[in-house]
Lab assay of single mutants.
Amino acid sequence: LQLFIKTLTGKTFTVEMEPSDTIENLKAKIQDKEGIPPDQQRLIFAGKQLEDGRTLSDYNIQKESTLHLVL
């Protein structure tokens, strides 16, 4: 599923993930694309901070959802 990642600077980029992927996987993918170390990434969806060990489906993140990346 394609997700939109929006940064505080207003930049938006996309990543391609599976619902079974963990937040950790997502942070690694963001590191590949943007060079931001996972330990500096905080991801927010629907007002909640996402925890590394959980999956996208745990948070009911669907295709074309927008996640906010806070550094």
Rank of each mutant, 00 (worst) to 15 (best):
Lys48Phe: 09
Pro38Met: 10
Leu1Ser: 05
Leu1Tyr: 09
Ile23Thr: 05
Ile23Asp: 00
Glu51Gly: 04
Asp21Gly: 09
Lys48Trp: 08
Asn60Trp: 05
Thr55Met: 13
Glu16Lys: 12
Ile44Asp: 04
Thr22Lys: 12
Gln41Phe: 09
Glu34Pro: 01
Leu71Cys: 04
Glu51Leu: 09
Glu24Pro: 03
Glu64Asp: 12
Glu24Ala: 11
Ser20Leu: 13
His68Ala: 10
Ser65Gln: 07
Glu24Ser: 14
Gly10Gln: 05
Asn25Val: 14
Thr14His: 11
Ile5Tyr: 01
Phe13Ser: 02
Ala46Asn: 10
Leu56His: 01
Asn25Thr: 09
Ser20Val: 08
Ser20Cys: 05
Asp58Ala: 05
Lys27Phe: 02
Leu69Gly: 01
Gln49Ile: 15
Thr55Phe: 07
Val15Pro: 00
Leu50Ala: 02
Gln31Leu: 09
Leu50Glu: 00
Asp52Arg: 04
Ile36Pro: 05
Asp52Asn: 13
Val70Ile: 15
Leu3Tyr: 04
Met17His: 04
Thr12Met: 09
Asp52Tyr: 05
Gln62Met: 11
Val15Asp: 00
Asn60Val: 05
Lys29Glu: 06
Glu24Gln: 07
Gly53Arg: 07
Asp39Gln: 07
Val70Thr: 07
Leu43Arg: 00
Leu71Lys: 11
Asp58Gly: 04
Lys48Cys: 04
Leu67Arg: 02
Leu71Pro: 10
Met17Arg: 01
Tyr59Trp: 02
Gln62Val: 11
Gln49Met: 09
Lys48Ser: 06
Val70Gln: 07
Lys33Thr: 09
Val70Arg: 08
Leu26Arg: 00
Gln40Ser: 11
Gln62Tyr: 14
Lys29Gly: 03
Lys27Cys: 01
Ala28Asp: 14
Thr55Asp: 03
Leu43Met: 03
Glu24Asp: 13
Phe45Met: 06
Ile5His: 00
Thr14Val: 12
Pro19Tyr: 10
Leu56Arg: 01
Thr12Pro: 05
Glu34Phe: 11
Phe13Thr: 03
Lys6Asn: 08
Thr55Arg: 14
Tyr59Asp: 01
Leu26Asn: 00
Asp39Met: 14
Thr12Leu: 12
Leu69Tyr: 02
Ala46Gln: 08
Thr22Phe: 07
Ile44Phe: 11
Thr22Leu: 15
Glu64His: 15
Thr9Asp: 12
Pro37Phe: 06
Leu67Asp: 01
Gly35Phe: 04
Thr12Ser: 11
Asp32Pro: 02
Lys6Ser: 15
Asp39Glu: 12
Leu1Thr: 04
Gly47Ala: 04
Leu67Lys: 01
Lys29Ala: 13
Arg42Pro: 01
Met17Thr: 12
Leu1Arg: 04
Gly10Val: 03
Lys48Pro: 01
Leu56Val: 10
Leu56Ser: 01
Glu34Asp: 04
Leu71Thr: 14
Lys29Ser: 10
Val70Phe: 12
Gly10Asp: 06
Asp32Gln: 14
Phe4Ile: 11
Met17Trp: 13
Ile36Ala: 04
Lys33Arg: 10
Glu18Asn: 08
Asp21Thr: 06
Ser57Pro: 03
Asp32Thr: 08
Pro19Gln: 07
His68Ser: 06
Ile5Trp: 01
Leu8Tyr: 10
Ile36Gly: 02
Phe4Gly: 03
Gln31Met: 15
Gln41Trp: 04
Ile36Cys: 03
Leu3Phe: 07
Ile44Thr: 06
Lys33Phe: 10
Thr22Cys: 03
Phe45Val: 03
Ser57Val: 07
His68Val: 15
Glu18Ala: 14
Gln40Trp: 08
Thr7Trp: 08
Leu56Trp: 02
Lys11Gly: 08
His68Asp: 10
Leu26Ile: 10
Ser65Cys: 04
Leu56Pro: 03
Leu67Glu: 02
Lys33Pro: 01
Phe45Tyr: 10
Lys63Thr: 08
Lys63Met: 09
Glu51Val: 11
Leu8Pro: 13
Glu16Val: 12
Gln62Arg: 15
Ile44Leu: 09
Phe13Ala: 02
Leu3Arg: 00
Ile36Thr: 12
Lys63Ile: 13
Leu43Phe: 05
Leu43Asn: 00
Pro19Thr: 06
Leu43Glu: 00
Ile36Leu: 09
Leu26Trp: 00
Leu56Thr: 01
Phe4Ser: 08
Asp21Glu: 13
Lys27Val: 02
Tyr59Met: 04
Ile5Thr: 00
Lys63His: 14
Met17Gly: 13
Lys29His: 07
Thr7Ile: 09
Leu1Lys: 04
Pro37Trp: 05
Arg42Asp: 05
Glu64Leu: 13
Arg54Tyr: 11
Lys33Ala: 13
Arg42Phe: 14
Phe13Asn: 01
Leu3Pro: 01
Gly35Ala: 07
Gln2Arg: 08
Asp32Leu: 09
Pro38Phe: 11
Lys33Trp: 09
Lys6Cys: 05
Ile61Lys: 02
Asp58His: 12
Lys6Phe: 13
Thr22Ala: 05
Gly53Leu: 13
Pro19Gly: 07
Phe13Arg: 01
Arg42Leu: 13
Pro37His: 13
Gln2Glu: 08
Pro19Phe: 08
Val15Ala: 03
Thr22Arg: 06
Asp39Phe: 10
His68Thr: 08
Lys63Val: 09
Gln31Glu: 08
Gly10Phe: 05
Arg42Glu: 09
Glu18Gly: 11
Asp32Ser: 10
Glu24Leu: 14
Ala28Val: 13
Val70Asp: 06
Leu71Arg: 10
Leu67Gly: 02
Leu56Cys: 03
Glu16Gln: 10
Gly35Glu: 04
Tyr59His: 03
Gln40Arg: 08
Leu3Lys: 00
Arg54Leu: 07
Asp39Gly: 07
Thr55Ser: 09
Gln40His: 10
Thr55Cys: 03
Glu24Val: 15
Asn25Ser: 13
Ile44Trp: 10
Gln49Glu: 15
Phe13Glu: 01
Glu34Trp: 13
Ile44Glu: 08
Asp21Phe: 04
Glu18Cys: 05
Thr7Lys: 12
Gln40Val: 07
Asp32Tyr: 13
Val70Tyr: 13
Arg54Pro: 04
Phe13Val: 06
Asp39Ser: 08
Gln49Asp: 08
Leu1Asp: 05
Gly10Ala: 05
Phe45Asp: 01
Gly47Arg: 04
Val70Gly: 05
Arg54Val: 06
Ile61Gln: 02
Leu56Gly: 02
Phe13Pro: 00
His68Tyr: 13
Gln41Asp: 01
Thr55Val: 15
Thr66His: 12
Leu43Ile: 14
Thr66Leu: 09
Lys6Arg: 15
Asn60Met: 10
Asp39Tyr: 07
Ser57Tyr: 11
Leu67Asn: 02
Leu26Asp: 00
Gln62Asp: 10
His68Asn: 08
Ala46Lys: 13
Lys29Ile: 13
Leu67Gln: 02
Thr66Phe: 09
Arg54Glu: 04
Phe4Trp: 10
Thr12Asp: 09
Phe4Asn: 14
Glu51Lys: 06
Thr55Ala: 13
Phe13Leu: 07
Glu64Pro: 05
Thr22Ile: 06
Lys29Gln: 12
Asp58Asn: 05
Asp32Arg: 14
Thr12Arg: 12
Ile5Cys: 01
Lys11Ser: 13
Gly35Ser: 06
Leu50His: 00
Asp32His: 13
Ile5Met: 02
Val70Met: 07
Gly53Ser: 11
Gln49Ser: 07
Asn25Gly: 12
Glu18Tyr: 12
Thr7Tyr: 14
Leu69Trp: 02
Ala46Asp: 09
Ser57Lys: 13
Leu69Thr: 01
Ala46Phe: 11
Pro38Gln: 10
Ile30Lys: 00
Lys6His: 09
Gln49Tyr: 08
Lys33Leu: 12
Gly35Gln: 06
Lys63Gly: 13
Leu50Tyr: 01
Leu1Val: 07
Glu18Val: 10
Lys63Pro: 14
Gly10Lys: 06
Ser20Met: 11
Asp39Cys: 06
Ser57His: 07
Ile5Ser: 00
Ile30Met: 02
